[in-house]
Write a protein that binds this DNA or RNA. Structure first.
Lengths: 185, 185
DNA sequence: GTCTATATGTTGATAGAC
DNA sequence: GTCTATCAACATATAGAC
């Protein structure tokens, strides 16, 4: 691919958005083609199957998360890094209340599928859990594993509850509590 | 319906199981018909559409939850009632790690649909949240709203994480923590 | 009330002209 | 590399015999 057009990345971009908003299953290739402005038949030049496209979306999200984490790691204080993560979640509260957590909802949806990519999204969540746990370890906590789990479960949980209640305030409240907890640790 | 056959309830039973295991979208009427031993065409005698069946499944779950809650309310101590809820969740840890929380995963899946029943499952989760909050209120806590949210978010969150990691231990650990917290409140 | 056969619509995927 | 036309599979839902 000496000089590829930007169609591939436009397809991934549209798919990422639509999968989050409507779910992978409810988003057809035609929907993605239309949203990205790529003709239907041409999609299969870039992705040999829908699974392949789903896989690419997950891969792209993984890169985005790792890039974000790398930015935070410029800060030498692991406690501040965790607070950065929480601030990011707060800034996304409206989106999460509308469509759920992009990672969590994708894990739950794909886990029920019987396709080859079924459990690929799980890697995103477990990577995030490991990252969070690592920060607690660097803070010197022996209960780092427990704390990491506690943080991730609350983040995922307030996403589910906020989405069910369609109320971003849920995220605001729960994350405010988490921030207070982390600050005094 | 003077003397109805048990086909209607068998269909709901199969649908409840399959929707949880594979998701509503991925479970076809044919799947449900086969699992329940009811011929495909006959399903539409009992439910005029798939949405109608989904709706009935949600309704049945609601009744089951309310019945369970009523049993717990025989106990005069609200703290014990909350512990009963947590014990129930622990007893279901393997199922939840495999397929996710039946309520939470249904909320997340249906929220993305564009059908008339789209947000009906949300009522289950908000009912549970209200019930939990009421127990904290009866315990005399002024922060009952916050505590209720905290409990529900953690319950839902450990379901998502356990499902992604396919590890029931996640539920065991998080709920043990919740129980300790509630006991010393 | 029960069940078979089938209509109807949508989707993922392919063929093949350009 | 690009795009139109279309196939094949599968889903919901209905018609109509029993």
């Amino acid at each position: 691919m000496g000089r590829a057009s930007d169609k591939r990345e436009r397809l991934i971009e549209s798919a990422t958005k639509l999968f989050h908003q409507a779910g992978c299953k409810d988003t057809s290739i035609a929907d993605i083609a239309e949203d990205s402005g790529v003709p239907l038949g041409n999609v299969y030049y870039y992705f040999k199957s829908k699974d392949d496209l789903v896989s690419a979306v997950i891969e792209e999200r993984k890169e985005a998360i790792k890039a974000e984490a790398m930015k935070w790691e410029a800060n030498p204080d692991p406690k501040q890094r965790l607070l950065s993560l929480l601030d990011l979640q707060i800034s996304r509260k409206d989106e999460i209340a509308k469509y759920g957590c992009p990672i969590g909802s994708m894990c739950q949806e794909l886990d029920k599928e019987r396709t080859p990519v079924a459990h690929k999204a799980d890697g995103l969540l477990s990577w995030a859990l490991e990252w969070v746990t690592r920060q607690f370890k660097e803070m010197g906590h022996k209960q780092a594993d427990q704390f990491g789990l506690q943080l991730m479960a609350t983040l995922q949980g307030c996403g589910v509850v906020a989405n069910a209640l369609k109320d971003p305030k849920v995220i605001e409240l729960e994350i405010a509590r988490l921030k207070a907890w982390i600050k005094e640790l």
